[in-house]
Amino acid sequence: MSDIVLEARDLVKHFPLTQGILFKRQIGAVRAVDGINLQLRRGETLGIVGESGCGKSTLARMLVGLETPTSGDLFVQGRNMAKVGGAERRRGRRNIQLVMQDPYTSLNPRMTVGDIIGEPFEVHSEVLEKPKRRARVQELLDLVGLNPDHINRYPHQFSGGQRQRIGIARALALNPEIILCDEPVSALDVSIQAQVINLLEKLQKELGLSYIFIAHDLSVVRHIADRVAVMYLGRVVEIGTEDQIYENPTHPYTQALLSAVPVPDPKLRGMRDQIVLTGDVPSPANPPSGCRFRTRCWKAQEICAQREPELAVRQSSDHPSACHFAEVRDVVHAQR
């Protein structure tokens, strides 16, 4: 069996921009995800970082099948999801589950915790016969560190961290091999965040899960990820092992991002080589020509406006980076 459990090839999602109420005309498109190639290997955690609006959630939603790609291909365990039959597609989908950011809005307030966690069995009723479901839900509650006796409680009776555990239990219900976490701890306080990260790592070990972990907190991603992809305006601009990205970033955007993270150590104050970017992220409906980062890049040359840099390994580095002038720069980054 292949070692690659999930693969995206040239994945694109454009949202049409329309004008007019009665007769909608398309006047353009938000290029939320604009040609992404990714591979997720068995048992690994791939971190995805990037600023708000760069397309992380849209990518995640395509990967779990909640959003249809405008173009491109998605392979689950080597099977092209667009080309297989209905039954096999369902099995593929079952294998990938999503944990969402907001523990306050992602759970239906009128359903009991038992019904929420058991809901996937209603959709995929072939997985487990009805009489066995309650016991399975209690087992799942126990697995994520909640009291199995609380199966009849409602979401509002749980704290944020506990609700995130409920979301994780629901994602695990169908025994998936791949879990996509879209900002799973962003809404939580640090002390609670640590509890949830520990839980995710424990589950990965015990169940052999593969994770895609989306977050904007770079130190959390560094802690949990084996490999990291950095996104900017719908594209991956740099990808590598956690070490390569954090120790030897070669794309100016990655460098700026890392250098902007405040270090939780007052002794290092003022010692950081901080790159303060000017300007805002351009609109994804109208990305700059050539390199999309060029409007904020301090290294930009003429060629950057003319030719889009390929995501490729260049002489100056050991991992793929989408910059014509990729080179290692040492930034004091997220951690000691």
Binding site: S159, G161, S191, A194, I197, S219, R222, H223
Partner: peptide
């Protein structure tokens, strides 16, 4: 609080979380 921040030297280890709420 300080111990629950992820740190480089703790990579691959459990984070030290404050128990409870």
């Amino acid at each position: 609080l300080l111990e629950s921040i992820p740190r480089l030297d703790l990579k691959g280890q459990e984070l030290s979380a404050i128990k409870g709420l």
